[in-house]
Amino acid sequence: MADTSWLREFPQMDRMDLLEIRKTLDSAYREFSRSYGDSIESFFDPLLHFLVWFEQLLINSPWWAVILVVTALVYAATRSWKLSLSVVVSFLLIGYFGMWEDTMSTLSIITVCTLMSIVLGIPIGILMARSDRIRSFVTPVLDIMQTMPAFVYLIPVVMLLGIGKIPGLIAVVIYAIPPVIRLTNLGIRLVDPEVMEAATAYGASPMQRLFGVQLPLAMPTIMAGINQTIMMALAMVVIASMIGVKGLGQPVLKSITNQYFTLGLFNGLAIVALAIIFDRVSQAYARRTQRHSNGGRNV
């Protein structure tokens, strides 16, 4: 009688073979990080310097100056007194409860991550909108980036670059960049084809079409993508603190391991406050720059 065990149990790969595969891949990657880790790290040096400089700037400036500048920026972007006032109140409360320095660290890394995501994400989104081939390649990559548990891609990043700000930044950007790419692509594809045709018919060059028509008309959608990116970056801050990113995530991590409920709650609430501020400000800014779409009646 023939062996029928494969009917009852899954015909699994030999354990030794599986181990062999894992060993080979691991050692190959280790080899790769050993030989190229330094050069890749030095490639990111300018970014690290900027990040450190920006964080120090926020922490070392007097607290009232930071609040003043942030509030001025919020008012310039939204023209709303209500929003500016709630920003002042949130920051005062955060400072009063002793979370000022961590909040400044988080603010700096979120700002840099968002800028990175925009700088990388919008061009990728534009390329995706231009060619269906690029889109069919990028879409599954974005799907992987969004569904792969964040801890999994922390591993190779840490292996390559060690623990610190830059690997944290890379992890946050990988996690947070998909919305801005997706929505840039979507926004450009949704531009009224007749408007595009009109621009072409009047002799607009591809660049004039992109900057004069496509990007401005896609802006509400792109802004929604940026908004989502900021939210996801904030959510990722706690996880990134596991690999040494300073900020509000570290106390949260500490309170999980030590069961400090109140410490966790306070820092969690500070992250929520930052999130709400970023969200409201970016949305109010987007609405204000889209005055034409509601007929220029209300601001």
Partner: peptide, 29 residues
């Protein structure tokens, strides 16, 4: 591009105006 700029212009069924520019800027497009 040069030909489209100087030889022909076009009017569209659903107007094809740029919604984010003022009427004057649309005419001057």
């Amino acid at each position: 591009i040069d030909f489209r700029r100087h030889k022909m212009s076009m009017v569209f069924q659903r107007f094809g105006l740029l919604p984010h520019r003022s009427v004057l800027d649309n005419v001057a497009y």
